[in-house]
Design a protein around this nucleic acid. Structure first.
Lengths: 275, 275
DNA sequence: GCGTTTCCATACCCCCACGGTATCGCTGCG
DNA sequence: CGCAGCGATACCGTGGGGGTATGGAAACGC
């Protein structure tokens, strides 16, 4: 199967419309129709139920859509990483903006001090995007925070585990407590983070899209939230924290695509786990 | 990048010889040379150091070899799974021969009792092959045993954790002990399992390639070994076990490729975790 | 109910890119 | 210095991928 065929099929399967898919692919509709039927004939599998009015996926077609997307991602990642490897011998590390605390600089310093260390470019992105960046080859390695991020399909090493604290303005009614439980926070509206598609789920809390914005909202008394305790080192005045005893523990892991353990990456991982 | 180009490059990168690579690909050498230089020109990256006498990978070439293999695997898996989905709506589960104990039949029964369950084909294979079967699409889901198997690049759910026991013939000198420590076994020669390539590492222990063979060797007094305690339910007479207190705990997990969570697979995973 | 619109499939043509053969040019070796 | 080995280049033929025009079936409007 050629990637061209996969691209064609994925386009048709997503649009469920040969005309639109052909337009998206920058080609005419008839060759696209032919390409898909050839693919079906070569696989010996019906991928689409067609009537002259509508197109629908068969069971097998749904499988090929899922698997084909992953395969196309893998090909794109191969190309991107190859290009990056030639123009820049370094690594690209991705982390959530504002979430890395002191671990990240320590790790980078420790790695930079090693013989044979390569430059590490740090990319900060929104929550939930790290996986996509790793999968399609724009990044080599990521810092993830369990249990929030998923490590599906990645190799990982645990770096640290920490408890969580409630972050609030200094004058907040809960700021005098020495510790809290989740039940104390039952009726607090949580800030809402964007979904993968960039939209927000409905709810009472304020919409936020990065940690800076969140901390500013907290300063203004418009929000409170529970964050890993390492956030305390980067809080400005006017904010205070109280431990939340039964909040889930947050584990920071370093994660990378399983097949891509280059020498440089192995060094960085090793440096990270030694901290 | 087309898969054809990737196949060509991988062949050349593995052979480091255009003539042999072309032969392996069933084509003549000149079009292969051209295809590779075109690929290099299109990527804008030198993949190979060539002299008229020898070929060597550049840094970027090494990256493309790694990533390209993974991408080709993904494409092959997409094709295989699609074909399987059309001719057979079931799932293929792979487990190490003799390692699944009672968990596997329980799991299959629990799943089969569910509404909408599909047939599950069980494939038993040698140690360390499950990952390859999952990666290239010949299987949908696997039972793995940590810490022996690696779950790199897979999604997993823990099913059970058990301690390990020493398995030996009934008359063995250690069989009268109520428990053991690893230090008691320091000078016991371990049976040797095949490596990924099918060869055996040198060493004093007997060579084995499946659990049946191993148990027979133990019956004959030619070997002893440490196995998860669930093995006890399937031991025939003449073999006995003693707990090894400080042997690593064995966790059985169910594992699947991260992007392939079909409805049927989700059902099987759920049934498995409920046990 | 018939024209119209909206799709996907078919028919036909063209061109390019892929693969083949022949050959060159470089290099290490006897 | 000649030869053998190997990759690159030159040139050619063909198959297949893409284009346009058109067919044909199904939903929709009046």
């Amino acid at each position: 199967m050629e990637t061209r065929e996969l691209r064609y099929f994925v386009a048709v399967a997503e649009e469920l419309h040969f005309g639109r898919a052909a337009h998206r692919l920058g080609m005419a509709q008839p060759p696209l129709s032919r390409a898909i039927s050839q693919l079906e004939r070569r696989l010996g599998v019906d991928l689409l139920h067609r009537s002259s009015r509508s197109v629908a996926l068969t069971e097998a077609g749904a499988v090929l859509l899922r698997e084909g997307r992953a395969a196309l991602d893998a090909v794109a990642a191969a190309e991107r990483r190859t290009r990056r490897a030639s123009e820049n011998p370094g690594l690209v590390l991705v982390s959530k903006a504002g979430a890395a605390g002191e671990l990240l600089p320590k790790m980078l310093d420790a790695y930079a001090a090693e013989p044979g260390a390569v430059p590490v470019e740090v990319v900060l992105c929104g929550a939930g995007q790290q996986e996509a960046l790793l999968r399609d080859g724009r990044a080599d390695v990521a810092l993830l925070h369990l249990p929030f991020d998923s490590t599906a399909g990645l190799d990982t090493e645990e770096l640290s585990t920490e408890s969580q604290v409630l972050v609030m303005p200094a004058g907040h009614e809960l700021s005098t407590r020495s510790s809290l439980r989740m039940s104390d926070l039952a009726d607090v509206p949580w800030p809402r983070w964007p979904e993968l598609d960039g939209t927000y789920a409905p709810g009472p809390g304020p919409e936020v899209h990065d940690a800076t914005q969140l901390l500013q909202l907290i300063s203004l008394g418009r929000a409170v939230t529970v964050l890993p305790e390492s956030i305390r080192t980067s809080l400005h005045e006017g904010l205070t924290t109280v431990p939340v005893l039964d909040a889930p523990l947050v584990t920071t892991v370093i994660a990378w695509p399983p097949h891509s353990r280059s020498l440089a990456l192995a060094g960085l991982i090793q440096a990270a786990t030694r901290i």
